[in-house]
């Protein structure tokens, strides 16, 4: 049994804080604390000793976290991640580049990642921000896999693109599956047979 991940949310807006808390609780075993940003932030964080701090990228209080990077013991340095609404692209870039994670120590990064990914996904769902983005990404992903499967069939059977697509559609209809699932099966099979 692992210890719950102690997450501190720094958020002024109670409605947003509640949403994040709900999302985090649903996402995994977590203990969520909420603190409005104030001028004693650094010492409050030290007292609470969270594994993770969630704060908006543009929150002016973020600079107080910088003090914590100077803490002598790595265990005193929490990981900070961002849950910004203002600039989702920058938030994602920051998370991917790892600039937001000051130090990861003592806790398994994959665990943080899993909980956060799930929590953030839910959070964004609440905010109706994610849906469109994911749909686009899924559509792109599907189209890519269908195109690849078409290519596999065209090569294997010496047929045209339209014929390859018709073949997949028929197979999907007969089996009651989605065309993307059939395409994925074709691509997987062809990779195995190579």
């Amino acid at each position: 049994m692992t210890q719950p991940l102690r997450i501190l949310v720094i958020q002024h807006d109670p409605a947003r804080a509640d949403m994040l808390t709900d999302a985090l609780r649903q996402a995994g075993e977590t203990e969520v604390m909420i603190l409005p940003s104030d001028s004693r932030l650094a010492s409050r964080i030290k007292e609470l000793g969270p594994d993770l701090v969630l704060i908006d990228l543009a929150n002016p209080s973020r600079d107080a976290l910088e003090e914590l990077t100077l803490a002598s013991s790595p265990a005193d340095r929490p990981v900070a991640m961002f849950v910004d609404r203002s600039d989702p692209a920058l938030t994602r870039a920051a998370v991917e580049a790892g600039v937001s994670a000051y130090v990861v120590d003592g806790i398994r990064p994959d665990r943080i990642r899993a909980v956060l990914d799930a929590a953030l996904a839910r959070f964004h769902m609440f905010q109706k921000l994610r849906t469109e983005l994911d749909a686009t990404r899924a559509a792109l992903e599907q189209r890519k896999i269908i195109d690849r499967a078409k290519g596999v069939l065209m090569r294997a059977r010496g047929i045209s693109e339209d014929e390859a697509y018709a073949l997949m559609r028929r197979a999907a209809m007969e089996r009651g599956r989605k065309i993307a699932d059939v395409a994925a099966a074709i691509v997987t099979a062809s990779e195995l047979l190579q």
């Binding site: 990228l57 543009a58 929150n59 209080s61 973020r62 600079d63 920058l90 870039a93 600039v99």
Partner: peptide, 16 residues
Amino acid sequence: RAGNWSMLRDLLDLGR
């Protein structure tokens, strides 16, 4: 306009 110095540093680090 950045909201804090850390963010400004991130913007530069990330090439934004």
